[in-house]
């Protein structure tokens, strides 16, 4: 059986070579991520089903009681509404404005790098700093209102409690809370640079011939843009939407600094509710339930996206 032994030796040596070392090198990270991401999520899930709503841990099982309470509360219903409208308009604004500015910058513009840097500058700022600045700019008694008043406008910005159209759904008025617009402006201001950079890279990657051909057909310029160029940018658009969606579903620091929950919770968000109820109110089980809902909402979009990306490779 000498051949077998040789083979065994060889495989033992091979075990410590290359790909196996690679596995051993990654192993600590796998271990750490397993615990700090996956086990912790399970732990939070367990807390969300428990009765731990005071300082002292009480992990007795209460089923979906915390979730039931959340969904029947005025505050959480408001949060869901705010999040839906915030996410939709935020993504629309970031994608739309970023694409628009990217296309303009593609037109052989002098000083392109300067414009690009101006639009990307806010990306390097903290949401907290953004919140401080915009809170003053959109203060109803100051800031941009000093200009708008000259034209007879005087929006209440984040102090406005109107909901448009304000259909009565469960305990809340459903619609776009006008107060959210102030937060949206600040958030879009900060994140547009991201989609702009992505689209600039995408446009640069489209072969010149395709761009030329698009306009050769004699088609209307805008039509050519929408029919030929835009489809080429589809993968980028999907990527931007996904990444911006997870920013908006998690949004915390900007709102917390700029407006807080707002009057009647018009600018409240699940992340703020989670933070306050858990770490200021000691309602751990309630906070854990909010966290689990946030996680599920994000994973519904992220997991299919990642799976699709994997398939394409």
């Amino acid at each position: 059986m000498p051949t077998n032994q040789v083979r065994k030796k060889k495989s033992a040596r091979k075990f410590l070579k290359g790909n196996n070392i690679s596995f051993i090198v990654v192993l600590p990270s796998i271990f750490i991520i397993s615990i700090f991401v996956y086990v912790f999520i399970g732990w939070t899930g367990y807390v969300s089903l428990s009765n731990w709503n005071s300082l002292a841990p009480d992990l007795s099982f209460v089923g979906l009681e915390n979730f039931k309470q959340l969904f029947t509360s005025f505050r959480f219903q408001s949060d869901i509404r705010n999040m839906i409208f915030f996410s939709l308009l935020f993504i629309f604004g970031v994608v739309g404005l970023g694409l628009f500015l990217a296309v303009l910058l593609e037109q052989n513009i002098k000083g392109k790098w300067l414009f690009r840097n101006i639009f990307l500058f806010p990306m390097a700022m903290s949401f907290v700093v953004t919140g401080v600045a915009w809170r003053w700019i959109l203060n109803p008694e100051s800031g941009v209102n000093l200009f708008l008043q000259k034209f007879g406008f005087s929006p209440g910005w984040y102090t406005d409690t109107t909901i448009v159209p304000g259909w009565k759904v469960f305990d809340i008025e459903f619609g776009l809370p006008i107060g959210l617009i102030a937060v949206l402006i600040a958030a879009i201001w900060q994140m547009t640079g991201f989609s702009l950079a992505m689209y600039l890279a995408g446009l640069a990657g489209i072969p010149e011939e395709i761009k030329e051909a698009a306009y050769m057909d004699g088609a209307n310029k805008f039509q050519a843009f929408f029919r030929v160029i835009l489809p080429q940018l589809k993968p980028i658009t999907f990527g931007v939407i996904l990444l911006m969606l997870q920013v908006s579903l998690k949004i915390f620091d900007l709102v917390y600094t700029m407006t807080g929950s707002g009057p009647n919770f018009v600018t409240d968000m699940p992340a703020i509710y989670m933070y306050e109820t858990t770490f200021k109110g000691n309602f751990y089980a309630e906070g854990a339930s909010i966290a689990i809902i946030m996680l599920m909402m994000i994973m519904i979009f992220v997991i299919p996206y990642i799976m699709r990306q994997k398939e394409e490779h």
């Binding site: 991401v37 939070t44 807390v47 579903l249 998690k250 992340a271």
Partner: peptide, 8 residues
């Protein structure tokens, strides 16, 4: 993941 889901 939203970090809220691992904070506790």
């Amino acid at each position: 993941i939203p970090f809220q889901s691992i904070l506790i």
